[in-house]
Design a binder for these strands. Structure first.
Lengths: 254, 254
DNA sequence: TTAACAGGTCAACGCTGTTGTCATAAGGTG
DNA sequence: CACCTTATGACAACAGCGTTGACCTGTTAA
């Protein structure tokens, strides 16, 4: 329905033929892999259609046979990252521990590919891996005993918090080396030296600030969120049923 | 030391002369103001050097006499936004209500100018407005009765969560119109139509998902964080002293 | 064996940020 | 008032971007 111009053929109907001039046989997977490699090796700015074509040994315009536009490609990259994270996650049935584990995995997974995370963490892909994740997480919450509207609210807060922190911390990691060092230095050089009388609270806590600001606040924020959710749950269920019956046996749904 | 090419003159040494062809006299402030107006009126895509020049009635290249590059301009815009947000915040002495109010202000302030928020929310500036904010927020927490290490931990989680969500939601808003509409549609078109037997949890909550995913999860996440922090506080202080004595009279410190 | 067509290639468009060069009006100086 | 310096605006050009229409060609099914 996207006007008449659709050079993209659905992957199912694709009977891949015709190697590129340099001999490579293109595929959706190969393109996404190469894009991730480009991002990892040369930073977010290196990901352009033209450079990606060059890295693949194909004309840039060939990519448009596989992705409607660069945004479409970006979503495919994002979904691949979700898939990789989910594949290493093995829920135990304890909703709080499972969500904590998943959150930390999403976070550290993003830091492993900061450039990709920065570009894609805020997108709704609607692709297979994302759908599987949504299904599983909501299942965990409903299984824990949250009523549907509450489960959705907490799901939304949990997921967006994980993605938001992933993007935030990934952005720091993705900064040019000089800029990153400069930022770290600000806490020592500026904040830790403020006089007591003009900035009593900073001065009193300077030691803690220097220590704490050097690492991600995500674990703290995640624990606060989960702890509030747990409190809400006992409020609702009247104290019992903290574990609950899973709506679905452990393991990501396919 | 930024090589030999510096057409930017420090604002102090500026003795503004020479009106533009259309009669406007340029200045740093006028450029930032106009950029904010452009962003607000015509969306994030409208902010290009060329369009900004057009809106000012000046040649695009004239802007490079005031800002080193577009990133420099964006930081100036961001700084202006921080100032505006702080200026409209008036703490009452109730730590939880005050932090809630500040968080929401930071968030909505970013959404009003998503382009700037996306680029600047993860940077430590060490500038006056930022320092004032840090001093005030830590003061609020210590005044509430949090011991120093706990105050710093919660400060960090609170601030980074506000910035992270601001960037996340701003990024959505900053999306090209088509992509934004597409995302909204995914929840209706894809998620709301998944069959019950393959995706029972999504199917059961589809109605809530469509409703909830359309808006930001930040208010929920913020309330969860504050509620957990409040619980932590009564745990520490043994239930009394919920209001506490402010370490500093209300109002951002200057 | 051949015809259809998926898919790779080429060239071009309009857009972007940025810079080297030139022109000129403002403002200090005498 | 006239002069000179110079700050600063204008112009033109560059390289690079995403994207598309037209063309060409190898693969595959019949």
């Amino acid at each position: 329905m996207t006007s008449t111009n659709d050079r993209v053929v659905p992957p199912a109907a694709r009977r891949r033929r015709r190697p590129t001039k340099s001999g490579v046989v293109l595929s959706e997977e190969l393109i996404v892999e190469t894009a991730l490699r480009l991002l990892k090796e040369h930073g977010a700015d290196a990901l352009t259609v033209r450079r990606l074509g060059l890295a693949l040994g194909a004309d840039p315009s060939a990519l448009y046979r596989y992705f409607r536009d660069t945004d479409d490609l970006l979503l495919a990259i994002a979904d691949e990252l979700i898939g990789r994270t989910l594949r290493t996650w093995h829920p135990t049935g304890d909703w709080r521990a499972d969500l904590r584990d998943l959150g930390l995995r999403v976070h550290s997974g993003s830091l492993a590919h900061p450039q990709a995370a920065v570009l894609s963490s805020y997108r709704v892909t609607g692709r297979v891996h994302e759908i599987a994740a949504v299904e599983t997480i909501i299942g965990v919450l409903r299984g824990a005993g949250f009523p549907d509207p509450e489960a959705v609210r907490i799901y939304h807060a949990f997921v967006d918090q994980a993605l938001a922190f992933a993007a935030l911390d990934a952005a720091s990691v993705a900064l040019p080396r000089a800029a990153r060092d400069a930022e770290a230095g600000v806490w020592r050089a500026t904040y830790a030296r403020l006089p007591v009388d003009s900035h009593p609270n900073i001065a009193a806590t300077a030691r803690h600030l220097v220590l704490d600001m050097g690492r991600s606040a995500y674990p703290t924020a995640l624990d606060l969120l989960l702890s509030a959710a747990a409190a809400r749950l006992t409020e609702i269920t009247g104290g019992g049923d903290a574990k609950g019956t899973p709506q679905r046996p452990p393991g990501p749904s396919h």
